[in-house]
Write a protein that binds this DNA or RNA. Structure first.
Lengths: 354, 354
DNA sequence: CTATAAAGTATAAACGTTTATACTTTTGAG
DNA sequence: CTCAAAAGTATAAACGTTTATACTTTATAG
């Protein structure tokens, strides 16, 4: 029971306030320390009458157990770290929400470590989270320098799960969405609409997700006996989509449908074609990926592929907690994406030359 | 020194691994426990030779101090909580990055608590973060139920700072951006371009930021002796901007410039006017707010008002840490936004009737 | 060589819980 | 009323640091 100094709001005078501990609850409730501890930890062998006394005392004194003492005694921090690069992304937002929610359900608190892409590529990522033994486990979201992260975490024996990994065959536990299926579904949708000149623009090829989506694209086309119109890799982002599409138009490469590797690219492509008088979806169909917030709000609303972010977070938490419990033989998870058909895709119609 | 069970990767056999503590470092380095502790805490009175021995032992044994024990002994958790509603926002993203960075610089770890707007409005917000004494302080980002949060935090005597508060006169320490100035600057820019039919569309009026931006808008107009063309309140988001602008056009309300309360609204407004054949910025100037990522990527690039997110996070951390240190007489911070002139605003030109 | 300061050491208390052990009281069935 | 089970109690160890105190060694100036 230590004291700390506080200041009354009105006078600014310093007064001393006793920090309350479990002993104060013992005193107030009149039961033993062990009983109080049992109530705190929901141990069943406590008479209801005593439980009430304890709860009452806790309420009256506004007692909150000291987490450090608990952690020390229990050998557990109750903290799970989540490392990521950016937050400004519907998918990440959904995952973080989900992870947060499911962790809280299980009595864990979420520690966040955001690093900039630059730091992460330099391998400096999340050094802080790794330094003390502050967390019971770590969820790594879409790590750029995956190998290094895995090595580090294994060496430190910190339980971890990776969401959206980029390595073909990482031996770590992972939660992924079937990007091949996403690419396949998107492309199949365009084929079903009668398109035969289908282009694909996507992000950098070193992303596994990019390669997988492209594989789905290629596979769907091959099964339909259709040759790809063109495939382009660039950076993610509206601007890149715009530039790529502008390039196509200037070269006379004129797809009737485009499967973009993410919604921002799709938006850029739309911008470019519209700038040349194309109407969407009448003259060209566009399909994105990720279902960013703007996708359903722009005009026309963007057809896209949604990743099940709620499930991703839930599964990652489930896997990690099992790992922490010491469960062996857990296996990685592969979830399915969902095609959202909106207004930027339509049946192929022959377009009159401009 | 306790033991824990681990599994060899190859055999799956259970082996016992000793968890290393400071005592192992004492043994390995041959110096006293106090000296080791001093090295760990950067106390200067340690001979360089001994410091090296200790550091060497720490490295060889891959020792990381137990954070729970540290926290207990120091009476500090080293954790700062950040509560917010959504992450999917350039401004929030910037603030979280900044908060994270500046906390780490000061040896703190960031605990995140995301709640859904629904939860937050129901007052259930962040209950978890408040329950144990898990954090040394809390940064509250744009609280919907601000009064309740403040009351709760004061009652629990948890040091806190609010970023982007919505109450006119909260007695809490806050970090804000001068929304009045933002509205004023944006409107002044349009006036300087020769516009006299300027509309304003913004979010719900119960947001202080919305009212302040509007006040800046009104003040700038009044100083110029210009009457507002129209002022509308709706929800934030592309769709709402689109609908409002559509309504204007149908009613024959035709501003030559629009100041939108955020970038998404601006995008919706642009969509609507473009759908009616308006060219931007030739026929109508549009200005947004926040400088979301897409603002500089769309075509034409959106003129907007940027909030200094890096500074906001930095100031919030600074204030909070001072508060934790026990410093009195800290004062709230008001930062200035910046007008970013890009391609959606241009000199007023008389437009020929369609 | 001595006196003094700097740097080291050992020892122990403190931080606030959890949890094991051993013992005591209460409750309820027979 | 007796006895066993359930529920309680007291006591103490453990968790791994930090930090205060008092003492010892080492380096350095005179």
């Amino acid at each position: 029971m230590s004291d700390f100094i506080n200041e009354t709001a009105e006078t600014g005078r310093l007064i001393t306030i006793k920090k309350i501990s479990i002993l104060d609850i013992v005193e107030k409730s009149g039961v033993s320390l062990v009983t109080v501890s049992r109530v705190l930890n929901n141990v069943p062998t406590v008479r209801e009458e005593n439980r009430q006394k304890v709860l009452q005392a806790i309420k009256e004194l506004d007692y909150r157990p000291n987490s450090a003492a608990r952690s020390l005694a229990r050998g557990t921090t109750g903290l799970i770290g989540l490392t990521l690069i950016t937050l400004n992304d519907t998918v990440f937002d959904g995952i973080v929400h989900s992870v947060n929610e499911h962790l809280e359900e299980n009595g864990y608190l979420l520690a966040l470590s955001v690093s900039s892409p630059k730091e992460e590529e330099a391998g400096k990522q999340n050094s802080f989270l790794f330094q003390e033994d502050r967390v019971d486990g770590i969820i790594v979201l879409s790590p750029l320098n995956e190998k290094q992260v895995i090595l580090e975490l294994k060496r430190k024996k910190i339980p971890f799960v990776i969401i959206d990994n980029h390595l073909e065959s990482s031996k770590a536990l992972t939660v992924n969405v079937d990007n091949y299926a996403g690419g396949y579904k998107a492309t199949k949708h365009l084929l079903d609409l009668g398109h035969t000149h289908i282009a694909h623009v996507s992000g950098p090829e070193h992303f596994l997700s990019v390669r997988e989506r492209k594989r789905g694209f290629a596979e769907a086309l091959e099964q339909a006996g259709v040759a790809p119109c063109i495939v382009a890799h660039t950076d993610f982002g509206i601007r890149c989509g715009y530039e790529i599409a502008m390039g196509w138009i200037q070269q006379g490469i004129l797809p009737t449908a485009v499967f973009a590797g993410d919604d921002a690219l799709a938006l850029g492509v739309m911008d470019a074609f519209r700038a040349h008088g194309y109407r969407i979806p009448d003259d060209i169909s566009i399909i994105g990926y990720d279902d960013q917030v703007f996708a359903s709000e722009i005009h026309p609303q963007l057809t896209t592929v949604r990743q099940p972010t709620e499930q991703m977070g839930k599964e990652a938490v489930r896997l990690l907690l099992k790992l922490i419990e010491g469960s062996k033989r857990n296996s990685s998870v592969l979830l399915q994406p969902e095609l959202l058909i909106r207004q930027t895709t339509a049946n192929y119609k022959h377009r009159e030359k401009q």
